[in-house]
């Protein structure tokens, strides 16, 4: 810390003991910390040694073959966007905050390398605090970025992990670098250029701790090609799978009645092997129709959760989709069978 022997008439920040200085930086937002770094050499050295937490809430990264854009947000609303663009002389950086923007040119530098360096720097100040969301959009993950993730001493702590990419093979380049301890929600999207309604192989993904600890899932732009038993632990979700069978749905229902909590799960399926009504009815019993003469769905079923005043509500829609949700017993129609 700044030398205490220097005598000044006024007491200022430079006179604060080290423990106080750490405390102040711990409570400053990341923009303030970065500005303090520019105030004096002593402060810069102190900040670079101490690496005070930035306490970011959201990190969003958007990569294309021409540029990388990063969005950093702490609890204040004025979040900057930084763009690292390919430029014929090197890397052009555009920082935008609200309506203002500044442009710099780093000659003979590659934009991916500059981005990776700065990302590493930011993440070195984001070690203990937990992000609300980390989202990455990249059709293809650059090798340099993979290296940065591999070299990170601690995994990224975030509650939501969201990734938009071209194929399933990119997911495992990034997902394992999220700390499973804090993950609550996983979201996977396909890049606009990927073929629609594609099947993605999630074999390695469903084996990961990150998949197993999250309890919310969103996958709606492609079909996940793994058996439904891999989805039992999600209490909330909106996902498309390759196929569902009556047995698998029965197991899923039993799972909600016995072990895993349910909020609401919506499942779409590709239905290459059609889901047969008679198989369903054999396992689930006769469905309930609000108006049997004018059916709006393929049937509804209600299952009481033992020892509670709640029920699992299962609806099979016509449009290759279904929903399980948790409802109060009072919401079960009086003429419906409560199983």
């Amino acid at each position: 810390m700044p030398d205490q022997r220097k005598r000044r008439q006024k007491v200022g920040l430079a006179d604060m003991p080290e423990v106080v200085m750490k405390n102040i930086l711990e409570k400053a937002n990341f923009q303030s910390i970065l500005k303090l770094r520019k105030v004096s050499r002593d402060l810069r050295n102190f900040i670079d040694d101490e690496k005070p937490e930035f306490h970011l809430e959201i990190i969003g990264i958007h990569m294309t073959s021409e540029q990388i854009k990063i969005f950093l947000k702490s609890s204040e609303n004025k979040a900057p966007h930084i763009e690292y663009q390919k430029h014929e002389q090197g890397c052009q950086i555009v920082c935008s905050r609200r309506a203002k923007s500044k442009t710099y040119l780093l000659e003979n530098e590659h934009f991916v390398e500059v981005f990776c360096r700065e990302f590493e720097q930011v993440m070195s100040h984001q070690k203990t605090s937990v992000l609300l969301s980390f989202s990455l959009t990249a059709p293809k993950i650059p090798e340099e970025f993979k290296r940065v993730l591999m070299a990170k001493p601690t995994p990224i702590k975030t509650q939501i992990f969201s990734m938009t990419t071209k194929t399933h093979s990119q997911v495992m380049d990034v997902l394992p670098h999220m700390d499973p301890k804090y993950l609550k929600e996983l979201c996977f999207y396909s890049s606009p250029t990927s073929p629609r309604l594609e099947k993605w192989i999630f074999d390695g993904i469903v084996e990961s701790d990150q998949w197993k600890t999250a309890h919310m899932l969103e996958v709606v732009q492609f079909f996940v090609d793994v058996p439904l038993k891999n989805f039992h632990h999600f209490s909330a979700g909106n996902y498309f799978v390759n196929a569902v069978t009556a047995e698998e749905l029965f197991e899923l229902k039993e799972n909600y009645l016995s072990s895993n909590p349910l909020k609401r799960v919506f499942i779409g399926y590709l239905d290459e092997e059609p889901l047969k009504d008679q198989e369903l009815h054999a396992l689930f019993g006769k469905p309930y129709f609000a108006n049997p003469r004018q059916k709006v769905d393929r049937g509804r079923w209600y299952f009481r959760i033992a020892g509670t005043d709640k029920a699992v509500h299962f609806v099979l829609y016509f449009a290759k989709s279904l929903q399980f949700s948790l409802i109060n017993l009072s919401e079960v129609p009086s003429n419906a069978e409560l199983r």
């Binding site: 006024k10 200022g12 711990e26 409570k27 400053a28 937002n29 303090l36 105030v39």
Partner: peptide, 22 residues
């Protein structure tokens, strides 16, 4: 420390130098 930290919001490094007596 929270008050000191909050002071830095929306200031330039030059302004901070004066505010913090650095």
């Amino acid at each position: 420390c929270r008050v000191i930290g909050d002071m830095a919001k929306d200031k330039t490094p030059e302004e901070l130098r004066i505010i913090y007596g650095i």
